[in-house]
Amino acid sequence: MNTIINQEGNYNPPPLGDGGMDAVVVKNISKTYGKKKEVQALNNISFSVNPGELFGIIGPDGAGKTSLFRILTTLLLADEGAATVDGFDVVKDYKAIRKRVGYMPGRFSLYQDLTVEENLNFFATIFNTSIEENYDLIKDIYVQIEPFKKRKAGKLSGGMKQKLALSCALIHRPSVLFLDEPTTGVDAVSRKEFWEMLRRLKDQGITILVSTPYMDEAGLCDRVALIQKGKIMSIDSPEAIVNAFPYPLLAVKSVNMLPLLNELKLYDGLKDAYVFGEYHHAVLKNDNAVTGLKEYLEAKNFSVEINPVRPNIEDCFMMLMKSVSSEAQKQDV
């Protein structure tokens, strides 16, 4: 188990640990913070990630995404539960894990006063390799910042910092890559480009765990875990999560959108209604309610455009959030 570092230059992952074939296994992990453990960051989380999978952890700030990543990259100990990465235990085998994973934290964590090239060299050297040896893996990404290789990392723009950080996380050919909110605060164009880069890395066989608060990015993953308040609400392919949406969903539009929303909320057959871009989304209790809606709104003097729509991940996320919180309320009573 000693020759973890791959010296050949072609992709040839070292032997796995004895914890099974899955790239990542998380079993009943819990994590609290505070003297009285008053902050529950992760609450009994379990899931596993297949080798070569692009797996998304989707949830808002404070959902527990970073705690989870820090536990899996052996930088934080869980209170309870167990986890393995490539079959290695995150507590017992932390050294083996550190050699084989790449981690890009949410906050820019490279050396600001080293140049682009120096940073990359530094990380290559620490992992006992060189830029040349693994250049083919980072080439796509690195060529975009190579013209600035003599510039100090602290002087780079946000987009360039992101590319450098990804290059540094990849320079030792990790078998599992952890990316914590790589696209937060990044504009829509750069976000698209970043996801295209991830697809290409996946094609090279690297397992990728990526977290994001942007629900629209879920569709770009093989599978996603929707996480909120330290709990996983659903794990599946984006397609399957959308298909499991249990109610009819309509997009409704009129000239006066705000009064329309208020009127929708008073409709008997309504489960939920909320703004959604240029439309309102109306979640209805059943198909009868769908037929009745147009009549109801026209009786209230709204001239409306109503179309059935396929839910997206954000619809599903809100539905799950609301059902989780109403269950919690029931338990409190």
Binding site: G59, P60, T184, G185, P213, Y274, E314, M318, M321
Partner: peptide, 16 residues
Amino acid sequence: DEPTGGVDPVARREFW
């Protein structure tokens, strides 16, 4: 300036 970054979808709508 980017008031809703990272907020959950329900809170984001309440904010608007």
